[in-house]
Computed example of a mutant assay.
Amino acid sequence: MTTCSVISLPGAEACAGLVAKKLEAARCGLESRRFPDGEIYLRVADGVDGHEVVVVAQLREPDPQVPGLIFLADALRELGAAHVGLVAPYLPYMRQDTRFRDGEAVTSRSFARLISAAFDWLVTVDPHLHRYQALDEVYRIPAAVVPSAPAVAAWVHQRVAKPVIVGPDEESLQWVAEVADLAGCPHTVMRKLRHGDRDIEQALPDLQALQGRTPVLVDDIISTAHTMAGAVRGLRAAGLAPAVCVGVHAVFAADAAALLAEAGAAQVVSCNTLPHASNAIDVTGAMAEAVRAQQQAARYR
């Protein structure tokens, strides 16, 4: 039986530990530091010859991490790894999925080419798919998308009394409906007009569906939090209970957490795809199942 080893990029150790435990896999150590000129030094601390290696990387602020990620994959192959897969719960560079202005780099495609050349397969959680229907439109390797909806719905069902799931915009309808269906509660969505990164106008949904219930605002990414904070304020102004805010990926740029607190959010929670104090929903079990499926498929390719 092929040995499975899990190795993490710096900052992803806790996530890698959970994945390894659920895979019943060994952890592989990694030494990492910076030379005085800023270049990265990497050393794989354990043997990987013949192993199925899983690299776990939580890619918030990806630019400083990507060179090390590519170098690590290359080193693992040179050291004899049978296959090298990537678990990136948060998949960056999905925003720029077309050329909006002449001369722009379509970085989603460029990043996909880098990852596809370095790894045998990819596991991620709810990537931000807008103009792409699926990851295989840009990734040349098998890519498994782990849905967060079951874990989010389970948390809502267990922790929130009489919830109603609220989406921040029409684009969230399909996902919001799935979470609500799994949680056994109603749902609705708000309408959003974006005039700029920080200038967002939102229209309230049908308030009849929200009466007597706790609004649970759900979104795939909490980045600047301006959209979610505006929704919290709007719901409060309409006389509803303070909203619980749930995000899959806790990017939390700048003062996002403070912004939600000031808006009056009752609670802010996220999945553990990116490390953050708000992490309360564990999706690593589903990620481990996806890894098993990818490893099995890789052995027969």
Score class of each variant (00 low, 15 high):
2 T>R: 11
5 S>G: 12
9 L>C: 15
14 A>I: 09
16 A>W: 02
16 A>F: 00
17 G>D: 04
17 G>L: 06
25 A>F: 13
31 E>R: 10
32 S>G: 09
32 S>H: 14
36 P>Q: 06
37 D>C: 15
37 D>S: 11
37 D>R: 13
39 E>H: 06
40 I>F: 12
41 Y>I: 07
41 Y>E: 10
42 L>V: 12
42 L>P: 02
43 R>F: 10
55 V>G: 09
56 V>C: 07
57 A>I: 00
61 E>P: 09
62 P>I: 00
62 P>S: 02
70 I>S: 12
75 A>G: 11
78 E>T: 15
84 V>R: 03
85 G>Q: 11
86 L>I: 13
86 L>P: 12
86 L>D: 08
88 A>Y: 14
100 F>Q: 09
102 D>M: 06
107 T>Q: 14
115 I>G: 08
116 S>N: 11
117 A>H: 14
117 A>Y: 15
121 W>F: 04
124 T>V: 07
134 A>Y: 10
137 E>W: 10
139 Y>H: 04
140 R>H: 14
140 R>A: 15
143 A>I: 10
146 V>Y: 05
148 S>W: 12
149 A>E: 14
150 P>K: 08
156 V>P: 13
158 Q>E: 10
161 A>P: 06
163 P>D: 05
164 V>D: 01
165 I>N: 04
165 I>E: 07
166 V>W: 02
168 P>G: 05
171 E>P: 12
172 S>C: 03
177 A>W: 04
177 A>D: 07
180 A>R: 01
181 D>C: 12
186 P>E: 02
186 P>M: 04
186 P>Y: 05
186 P>K: 04
187 H>A: 11
188 T>W: 10
188 T>I: 06
188 T>Y: 12
189 V>W: 03
191 R>Q: 15
191 R>T: 13
192 K>R: 05
193 L>M: 15
196 G>T: 03
197 D>R: 14
206 D>Q: 03
206 D>M: 00
213 R>S: 14
214 T>I: 08
216 V>M: 01
217 L>D: 05
223 S>T: 13
224 T>S: 13
226 H>E: 11
228 M>N: 14
230 G>P: 06
232 V>T: 01
233 R>Y: 14
238 A>D: 04
240 L>I: 06
240 L>P: 01
243 A>T: 08
245 C>S: 07
247 G>S: 00
248 V>R: 08
249 H>G: 00
251 V>R: 07
256 A>L: 09
257 A>Q: 13
262 E>N: 09
262 E>R: 08
264 G>H: 11
267 Q>T: 05
268 V>F: 01
269 V>N: 07
269 V>G: 00
270 S>E: 08
274 L>R: 00
275 P>D: 06
275 P>M: 13
276 H>G: 06
281 I>D: 02
287 M>W: 13
289 E>R: 12
289 E>A: 13
292 R>E: 14
293 A>M: 13
300 Y>P: 15
